[in-house]
């Protein structure tokens, strides 16, 4: 089976001349949970926008979820790749939660019954079924984040990309989010600079710095390398020991592990 993300020499230069991504080579397999770490301005969000065809590479090649990223594949690509943006207020633009979660599936041209079933299922998966008829601005930050994830889950994407999912959450909402993401059985790319969050969810981590991929290794190795972290303006919060963090297992981890070994 094809890789979930397959980038070769991916480069993006903004019209202003700023080189945001420079020769990224990246392969992510199905079912993997990968953290994309890096300081602000490293190109993390630019990379994320490429995965869904919102930006296109100025050089290099990118294949996501089995599709070459180009104008023709956009519709299909957006159904296969779900982006969860950093600020839920940007993502939730419909007057009610229910309509917002239905927005994606309706754009995919699904029938009404199918859409209704998907909305119910997605809201149940993020434990927000009770809020279906509420307006997004009446929800707490943590609830908005969960609904934002539901809006994407309802499209049943193969690859889920989350931008700074733990930003602006209080500790309890953050812990609940970790539990929720751990149960979602999808290939997942988590863009963050919350290192303990990455350690809890992702077995593999990348470090993006000034548009280059400078590390791609098991999370435990990356986070244990203080010099590497310091060189790219990352650090573990004071008093947090890496070995005290337990990694959440992937749902159906054994099966995924086997197929990876067979494939690799």
């Amino acid at each position: 089976m094809s890789c979930a993300v397959h980038a070769r020499g991916l480069t993006h230069r903004y019209p202003g001349g700023h080189l945001a991504l420079e020769g990224i080579d990246l392969h992510i397999g199905h079912g993997e949970r990968v953290a994309v770490l890096g300081p602000n301005g490293a190109g993390k969000t630019t990379l994320m926008l490429h995965l869904n065809g919102l930006l296109t590479a100025t050089a290099g090649a990118l294949e996501v979820a089995g599709l070459e990223v180009c104008r023709r594949s956009l519709g299909e690509l957006r159904a296969r790749v779900g982006l969860v943006f950093q600020d839920p207020d940007d993502q939730l633009f419909m007057p009610t939660v229910h309509e917002d979660v239905a927005f994606g599936p309706l754009n995919m041209g699904l029938g009404r019954d199918e859409v209704a079933a998907r909305v119910d299922e997605a809201l149940a998966a993020v434990r927000m079924s009770d809020a279906a008829d509420r307006a997004p601005h009446l929800l707490s930050q943590g609830q908005r984040r969960r609904v934002a994830i539901a809006t994407v889950l309802a499209m049943d994407p193969m690859l889920l990309v989350l931008d700074e999912p733990s930003a602006n959450l209080d500790p309890r909402a953050r812990r609940e989010l970790v539990g929720l993401l751990a149960e979602i059985d999808r290939t997942m790319l988590i863009v963050t600079h919350d290192l303990p969050f990455a350690a809890e969810l992702c077995e593999r981590s990348l470090i993006l710095s000034a548009g280059r991929l400078v590390a791609d290794a098991p999370t435990d190795e990356v986070l244990a390398d203080d010099d590497l972290l310091a060189a790219h303006d990352l650090e573990m919060p004071a008093g947090i020991a890496l070995d005290l963090i337990t990694r959440r297992p992937r749902p159906g981890a054994e099966a995924a592990g086997l197929s990876l070994r067979a494939g690799g």
Binding site: N52, L83, G104
Partner: peptide, 14 residues
């Protein structure tokens, strides 16, 4: 965010 969820210029209705 709208484009990312397949918006193509028409607001879908439930």
């Amino acid at each position: 965010a709208m484009l990312a969820r397949g918006y193509s210029g028409r607001m879908p209705r439930l």
